[in-house]
Design a protein around this nucleic acid. Sequence first.
DNA 1: ATCCAGGTCGGTC
DNA 2: GACCGACATGGA
Length: 328
Amino acid sequence: MTGRINVSDFNLALTLECGQAFRWSRHGGDGWFEGVVGREIWRLRQTGDVLETEMEVPALPKSTAVATMHDPPDGNARIRRYLALNASLPHITATFPAEDKHLHAAVQKHWGMRVLRQEPWECLASFIASSTKQIVQIRQIVAELSRRFGEPLAAFGRGAVPRVRGRAAAQPYHVGGRDEPRPYRFPSVDVIARASHTDLWNCKLGFRAKNLLAAARMIDSGKVELHGLPAMEYERALEELLKLPGVGEKIANCTLLFSCGFDQAFPVDVWIERALRRLYFPHRKVTARQLRDFAHSHFGPYAGWAQQYLFFNERTAARGGRNAAPQN
DNA sequence: ATCCAGGTCGGTC
DNA sequence: GACCGACATGGA
């Protein structure tokens, strides 16, 4: 399934590589990105204001009649929703405080970056795995979890030569090797809930393994209901996520922002804390709590978007490179 | 080698 | 409340 989407005020590479999702990679070298969303493999390429799309959608077995309840929206609609293309970036940035030149500089510098709408469980699990890990390691953990526990996606069957746009791929995957990387679905809640602590540990989770396992069990047993979160009030949804072991305010807010549509959620990690202290409280002593209160009152209803611009800005600045993309 | 990473938790004072 | 160390692992 292929398609084209007209886009504006959008930068695909920035959006996929600014640190909010961990399963996208450049594919080939001709501008294509490939990722797994749900049980589908998506390939995306932006040329100016046109977004080219390719989706590999596995056919559902006839026996599973679950999907007949309602037809899923068409492919491009799912992509638009995932990439938040229906939101107006000029409208969003216009809600930022006009006098905040630090923020507006970051917005201008990284114009087109959008906050994704990911699947809640994958997002939550990824950020449970993220604590005191570099982004490159989070990607490794998520890949390993998917490889060990996730359903293999059929498009690149065992032994099949993967193809890139109709021709044989040079080496996007290590075909033939025993550990041939190929797309796997991110493992579902019940699979993780039934996994052994040791098997999770072996995915390089370290001390995070017990948290992921316990969180999956709580969700699987219905003690926490992820699908209900988007319909809740923000404070209530936050409270719900904080019930999960290993989930504090930072991880909870990442989940609410990146997967539940709470544009005001403002995750405070070491990078954003550095940025806030440097830009808004130079040479002043402020607690982490004060920083959080400031963020929620200062940035407005799209504070989470502001956070993502400041976060990425801080990371790229730290690399000392003008356009240097973060490598970790 | 040493420091630090998209943190959280349970102890202290 | 604020502060602190433990918790594992590996990249830079």
